[in-house]
Simulated scan of single mutants.
Amino acid sequence: MSSIVTEQGILHYESIGRGQPIILLHGWINSWDVWRDLMISLANTKRYRVYALDFWGFGDSAKGSQAQTAAFQIDSYVEMVHQFMDSLGIQSAPIFGHSMGGTVALQISLAHPDRVEKVALVGSPIIGRSLHPFLQLAGYGSIAKLVWRYPIVLHSIMRILLAKDSKEVRNMIFRDVQRTTIESFFRSIGDLRDTDLSKQLPTLNIPTLGIYGAKDNIVSPTNADLLKNGVKSVEVQMMPQSRHFPMTDEPERFLKTVNSFLINHSNGQAVQ
């Protein structure tokens, strides 16, 4: 267990392997652990040093205070990754993100392309309004506080949303939501809901990968079309049997896609 100290408190991360640095960012009410299998697989190639971060407000990173609510917004998470890279002396690296983490990775790539060698989005919203309606509602403080006050309501909604997901995914989410505070719960998803990076996509000039589950009910897989139509150098892999966690639903295909992207430069052609 490793960490650095920031103005917003402790930033927890895990790392494994030796070689080129790669940074992995998790999604909403999740933690670094969503990347565990990928981290091990990449480290076993002996080519990569893999870092998986916990966003402020999630996992084992600082939960902040009500006075630090700005720390739970997309721009603040971009700054968090900058602080992490500066602290460890990482000038640039491939950055992968799942769900909200992919939106953060995309924002970093658009605003600071010199720090991102390649970017990969896994089930990530480019337009926040493509989120499931419940996630959009969870971004309103009054609704979030009501749900938070009655945990049985939150758990019931999560069971409905995750009913067709694997036991592994359900256990992971139910564990990670218990390490989340109400402030990070609704402020992060509220900011994500209001994010729209679609118009900036044509300015992205680094190799880009999009992986989406065809059966994703959390983030609409139509975001893949935005990537294909907006980014110059892009590969898009649609996972036909996957929902919101393709790394768990189709692990072999997911790993093959990631390895291919890391080894080869994008040729600008979308892969179906």
Rank of each mutant, 00 (worst) to 15 (best):
S3V: 03
S3W: 07
Q8I: 06
L11C: 08
H12L: 06
Y13E: 02
E14I: 05
E14Y: 04
S15P: 00
Q20N: 12
H26Y: 07
N30L: 05
L38P: 03
S41R: 09
A43W: 05
N44T: 07
T45C: 09
Y48T: 10
V50C: 09
L53C: 13
F55L: 12
F55P: 03
W56C: 08
W56H: 15
W56R: 06
G64T: 04
Q66S: 15
Q68A: 14
T69C: 11
T69Y: 09
A70S: 15
A71L: 02
F72A: 13
F72T: 11
Q73T: 15
I74V: 15
D75R: 09
D75I: 10
S76W: 03
Y77H: 15
M85A: 14
L88D: 11
G89H: 02
I90H: 07
S92T: 11
S92W: 01
A93C: 01
I95W: 07
I95D: 01
A105S: 13
L106Q: 03
S109D: 00
S109T: 08
L110R: 10
A111C: 08
P113H: 12
K118H: 06
A120T: 06
V122Q: 06
P125K: 00
S130V: 03
L131F: 00
L131I: 00
G139H: 00
L146D: 12
R149L: 09
Y150C: 10
Y150V: 12
P151K: 04
H155Q: 14
I157V: 13
R159K: 15
D165G: 02
D165Q: 10
R170P: 02
N171H: 13
M172Q: 13
M172W: 11
I173W: 06
R175Q: 14
R179W: 07
T180F: 06
I182Q: 11
E183M: 05
S184L: 03
F186D: 00
I189D: 04
T195K: 04
L201H: 06
L201F: 02
T203G: 12
T203P: 07
L204Q: 06
N205S: 14
P207E: 12
I211D: 02
G213R: 01
D216E: 00
I218F: 01
I218K: 03
V219D: 00
S220W: 02
T222Y: 07
D225E: 10
D225S: 11
K232V: 06
S233I: 05
Q237H: 13
Q237D: 12
F245I: 10
M247Q: 13
M247L: 12
R253I: 10
F254Y: 08
L255T: 12
N259S: 12
L262E: 01
N264L: 09
G268H: 05
